[in-house]
Design a protein around this nucleic acid. Structure first.
Lengths: 175, 175
DNA sequence: GGGTACATGTAATCAGTTACATGATTTA
DNA sequence: TAAATCATGTAACTGATTACATGTACCC
């Protein structure tokens, strides 16, 4: 038996299907763009390939329409639910990487100020977008279903605030 | 003529070679682990493959020892310097992605506190490491050569502080 | 009824990862 | 001189990206 290699994309797919109960690749695409926003992007073609891979390995069950668009709808199998639960419950001390292109440029000797200005603007805009979206959602209410959307937004907001502070600081320091 | 596809790795390689004047893949490996630390990791095999790709496309010049280890030493060509300079000087409003696994788990409904505790610990440790390293470097002095190591460290430190604050906040909020 | 945006997928390519492999130096 | 560690690379695989392609529904 061949080992199945779980990537982050694998867990995202399993997780989104768990949240929704069942999903087509298009549903997944929507979920990613709506909930995970800039947090963890996956190109839509992967959202066709990855569920397929997971289904072949027995972690998802696929049901295909026989007429029309012949959509595939995926649901979790027992096995799939088990590995996802295990992944989610496990604590990791793995650290995220920075991977910010503007920082990399500065590292290599670029002028910091123009980069800082552009990034500051972009992050502020993103922050405003998140906050506006959060406002339309209203405060979290358990009766509204899973907590996920709020968690994603709140993380995004904190993240953006940290970046705004960072670039502001850099602009001030240079002044 | 085929388009050459520049990845982030491409620019890292070009940039490190510019900093050093010339470099073997092993030098690159050292530079990455020493200066870029957790900021932008590249596996060492890529540091053999990527310079080769760049050399074939005319952005690097390769010189190979004829005896012993037959090391390849790479230097920038005019063309290579030009594309790197252009990349470095260009301002981008592209935003970095978050890509933090613990946040993803929380998004999917994991218990936040154990994750927060583990991450807090890991980030604090990383922060301490960076600060210790910065202390051994001392303050920046132009006579010491390129500014890059300081920039990398300072970015890393700010970054880690933001994460520490975030996880601390989460722990407190849950209390 | 023609355009345009949404919806749904496949195919080809390639960068990146993992695993393997071996040569040179130091150290015990 | 055996063992470890540092140094240097290659090979195989595959997940991810990019590009292509087509169908459906709405709207002007």
């Amino acid at each position: 038996m061949q080992e199945f290699n779980f990537t982050h994309t694998s867990y995202m797919v399993l997780g989104l299907i768990e949240l929704a109960g069942s999903a087509t690749p298009y549903n997944l695409k929507q979920a990613v763009s709506q909930w995970l926003g800039r947090i963890w992007l996956v190109p839509h073609s992967q959202l066709y390939a990855e569920p397929d891979r997971l289904a072949k390995a027995g972690y998802l069950h696929a049901e295909r329409e026989t007429t029309g668009r012949r959509r595939k709808t995926y649901t979790l199998t027992e096995k799939g639910r088990a590995v996802f639960d295990e992944w989610r419950a496990s604590v990791t001390d793995e650290l995220p990487e920075l991977r910010d292109i503007s920082t990399l440029k500065i590292f290599f000797g670029a002028e910091p100020r123009p980069l800082a200005a552009a990034q500051l603007e972009a992050h502020r805009q993103q922050l405003a977008e998140y906050e506006a979206y959060l406002a339309t959602l209203g405060p979290y209410d358990p009766s509204k279903g899973p907590r996920a959307p709020w968690v994603g937004l709140e993380a995004g907001i904190e993240w953006e605030r940290a970046w705004v502070a960072r670039w502001e600081g850099l602009l001030k320091a240079g002044g």
